[in-house]
């Protein structure tokens, strides 16, 4: 998948370069390669020690019967864990919820952030103030996120039901009701991811040369058209990067969901990483848990590769 991305991501760059240096393996190519290595090396040691090694160990444990017991012996058992996992219905059932949860949060956050970033980029009043207010939820310690939203959603004393009460509606048992629990949690997911996504998109908008906007404006394009033809294409790579990462993070993060609902009501908000956690730490079957992790990696990469390839293909078609 990465190769595909690499190939489609830089078509213009490649053609420009080969024109200039006359061939893929010219001296300039080799120089650039050396340069790249030099730019990467300083971080390589910590990356290998603290990231690559633990990651490789984690992935490999999926093929063992490792437990966290004292003096546990570890044996390679091939694909036994995966065979066992194939029959684990509870784990697979949670996949559906996980995908609904992660996709909704990633897509809705992306849409909201795009709108919000455009608003913050427009010439509206109180710009410095609004930009800071938008960022505060990001700065708040995550430990209170669950707590404050539980207060807001509270059936009896929550402000949300109080507000509904003014219109003669409710009360709704947001987190306790089987039909509203997942949507309610998704809203919290959007709330906590929106500021960061907005900032990243705003930074992307700042990087679009103003000349492009001016040129489009001179061609008579109105705001919506300029957004569609200048802003959006310019943001495309950033937008793809941020929505895919939002998807991954939310798929992997059972923290918010767990704090709000502890998987309830009735398992309506139980997502796959919770099983990984319980298996790894509570059952201490780290081998089996790592097999779950390996499966999650494959599943997410599959979903993402479809998304990214489709996105970049559109981009390519849009250009030609």
């Amino acid at each position: 998948m990465s190769a595909a991305t690499a190939a489609v991501a830089t078509p213009s760059a490649r053609s420009a370069r080969s024109r200039r240096s006359g061939g893929p393996s010219g001296p300039r190519q080799r120089a650039e390669r050396r340069e790249a290595i030099a730019l990467v090396i300083p971080a390589l040691l910590p990356i290998i020690v603290f990231s690559v090694i633990p990651l490789a160990v984690g992935v490999a444990l999926g093929f063992t019967n490792a437990t966290l017991a004292r003096n546990a012996t570890i044996e390679f058992i091939g694909f036994d864990n995966f065979v066992k996992l194939a029959g684990d219905t509870a784990f697979w059932n949670s996949f559906g919820i996980g995908i609904v949860w992660a996709t909704s949060v990633a897509v809705l956050t992306g849409v909201c952030a795009l709108a919000l970033a455009s608003l913050l980029n427009a010439n509206l009043r109180f710009k410095p103030l609004t930009r800071i207010i938008v960022l505060i939820p990001w700065a708040m310690p995550p430990v209170v996120t669950g707590i404050v939203w539980r207060m807001i959603y509270d059936v009896n004393s929550g402000p949300l039901n109080a507000a509904l009460g003014w219109f003669g509606l409710g009360p709704v048992n947001w987190l306790g009701d089987f039909s509203t629990a997942l949507p309610a949690v998704i809203v919290v997911g959007i709330w906590s991811g929106l500021p960061q996504t907005t900032v990243l998109l705003l930074a992307g908008m700042q990087s679009i040369p103003t000349e492009l906007h001016e040129a489009a404006a001179m061609d008579g394009a109105n705001g919506a058209r300029r957004f569609w033809h200048v802003t959006l294409p310019g943001l495309r790579s950033v937008l793809i990067a941020i929505t895919s990462i939002d998807f991954i993070w939310n798929f992997n993060d059972f923290g918010i969901v767990y704090v709000l609902t502890e998987g309830g009501p009735g398992g309506r908000t139980m997502i796959p990483p919770l099983f990984t956690y319980l298996e790894a730490f509570r059952n201490r079957e780290i081998g089996y848990a790592s097999a779950m992790g390996d499966v999650l990696v494959l599943a997410i990469l599959l979903i993402l590769s479809v998304y990214i390839v489709v996105q970049f293909r559109q981009q390519k078609e849009g250009r030609s």
């Binding site: 690499a6 090694i53 160990v57 984690g58 990483p273 990984t276 956690y277 992790g293 990696v297 993402l304």
Partner: peptide
């Protein structure tokens, strides 16, 4: 581009996708 870039991309995605809880102990 080339192998370095591919390796980098794989590493980036793998770190994000693989559940952190499983990396803690190693």
């Amino acid at each position: 581009r080339g192998k370095l870039r591919a390796a980098g991309t794989v590493w980036i995605l793998a770190t994000q996708v693989f559940p952190q809880i499983l990396i803690i102990i190693p």
